[in-house]
Simulated scan of single mutants.
Amino acid sequence: MFLIPHEGNPTEAIVDDVYDSFVANYGQPAYLSNRAIVTPTNAKVSEINEYMLQLVPGDSKAYYSSDSLLQSTETADAFDQCYPVEFLNTLKFNGVPDHELVLKNNTPVMLLRNLNPALGLCNGTRIMITMLGNDIIKGNIMGGTLDTDEVIVPRIVLNIENPKWPFILKRRQFPVRLCYGMTINKSQGQTLDKVGIYLPEPVFSHAQLYVAVSRVKSARGLRILIDNPEDIPHDHTRNIVFREAFADIMTD
């Protein structure tokens, strides 16, 4: 039975199922590195990670980015008036750390940029935090050939372009994000013992559901929570397929 039944809070339901015995194992890298919750949108990922962070004992530490605009001198004054720092702080982008980054010791994070591939600091590497400094984060790599290796993550400057905005945003922040939950796209490359697929709505791109299901090593570790509107049963969801992809396939 893959489906997780629920009547109340769907986030709580899937967390309790995928991260069973969490209180006893929250600080164990082997426990955390073999399970994750995947979902289509960053908004739901943030919701899951914030919920999980509250379950971890200890004080949290908040890091705030330094945001500014990369711009020409001709437009500097106009842009500064139209897009103040307070507005820049509210912007969120896929694959980019938010302005406010809240972390605790003994929590897993995923790198969002390649920092030093030779040391295992690659986009997608998962790290168990052991120390939260003012200017660096220290932790141990989770999984892979460099499993348990100690690494240091600095703040870096990320130049962010988005066609929605007529500027390039410069954000200085730690390039990490909590990874109890992750987007389906970001989960590519992961192979885990236990995967919870949280679908508050049907997946929205071709083959994305296949990507989510294929993150788990065996059917025993697959759990799915479908949170359809009340008038739609919670035991099915749409699988988005571009039929045009099969247009040139010849059949007998």
Rank of each mutant, 00 (worst) to 15 (best):
Met1Phe: 13
Met1Ser: 02
Phe2Arg: 03
Phe2His: 06
Phe2Ser: 10
Leu3Arg: 14
Thr11Ser: 15
Val18Tyr: 02
Tyr19Ser: 08
Ser21Gln: 12
Val23Leu: 13
Ala30Arg: 07
Tyr31Leu: 04
Tyr31Val: 03
Leu32Gly: 03
Leu32Cys: 04
Leu32Ser: 00
Arg35Ala: 03
Ala36Trp: 03
Val38Pro: 00
Thr39Arg: 01
Pro40Phe: 14
Glu47Gly: 02
Glu47Arg: 11
Glu50Leu: 09
Tyr51Gln: 07
Tyr51Glu: 10
Met52Pro: 02
Leu55Cys: 13
Pro57Gly: 04
Gly58Glu: 05
Ala62Tyr: 02
Tyr63Asp: 07
Tyr63Gln: 02
Ser65Asn: 07
Asp67Gly: 00
Gln71Val: 13
Gln71Pro: 11
Ser72His: 11
Thr73Met: 15
Glu74Lys: 12
Thr75His: 03
Thr75Arg: 08
Phe79Val: 01
Asp80His: 14
Gln81Glu: 05
Gln81Thr: 07
Pro84Leu: 08
Phe87Pro: 00
Leu88Ile: 13
Asn89Met: 09
Phe93Val: 04
Val96Lys: 04
Pro97Ile: 05
Asp98Val: 04
Glu100Arg: 14
Asn105Ser: 14
Pro108Glu: 06
Leu111Asp: 02
Asn116Val: 01
Leu119His: 04
Leu119Glu: 05
Leu121Tyr: 01
Cys122Gln: 12
Gly124Ser: 11
Thr125Cys: 07
Met128Trp: 02
Leu132Val: 07
Gly133Asn: 10
Asn134Trp: 07
Ile136Gly: 09
Gly139Ser: 06
Gly139Ala: 04
Leu146Asn: 12
Thr148Gly: 05
Asp149Ala: 14
Asp149Leu: 09
Glu150Leu: 09
Val151Cys: 08
Val151Gln: 15
Ile152Asn: 00
Arg155Cys: 13
Ile156Gln: 08
Leu158Ile: 13
Asn159His: 15
Asn159Gly: 07
Asn159Val: 06
Pro163Asp: 10
Pro163Cys: 13
Lys164Asn: 13
Lys164Ile: 06
Pro166Lys: 11
Phe167Ser: 11
Ile168Ala: 08
Ile168Asn: 15
Ile168Pro: 05
Lys170Ala: 04
Arg171Ile: 02
Arg172Leu: 02
Gln173Ser: 08
Leu178Thr: 00
Leu178Arg: 01
Leu178Gly: 01
Cys179Asp: 01
Tyr180Glu: 12
Met182Val: 13
Asn185His: 15
Lys186Met: 07
Ser187Pro: 10
Gln190Pro: 06
Lys194Phe: 07
Val195Asn: 05
Ile197Lys: 02
Leu199Val: 11
Pro200Val: 12
Pro200Thr: 12
Val203Gln: 00
Phe204Gly: 09
Phe204Glu: 06
Ser205His: 11
His206Gly: 08
Gln208Ala: 08
Leu209Met: 05
Tyr210Trp: 15
Ala212Phe: 03
Val213Ile: 15
Ser214Asp: 07
Lys217Glu: 11
Ser218Leu: 00
Ser218Glu: 14
Ala219Thr: 05
Arg220Gly: 07
Arg220Val: 06
Gly221Ile: 04
Gly221Val: 08
Leu222Ala: 05
Arg223Cys: 12
Ile224His: 01
Leu225Thr: 01
Glu230Asp: 15
Glu230Pro: 07
Glu230Cys: 09
Ile232Tyr: 06
Val241Lys: 14
Arg243Met: 14
Arg243Pro: 15
Arg243Ala: 15
Ala245Phe: 03
Ala245Gly: 06
Phe246Thr: 13
Ile249Trp: 14
Ile249Arg: 14
Met250Val: 15
Asp252Asn: 14
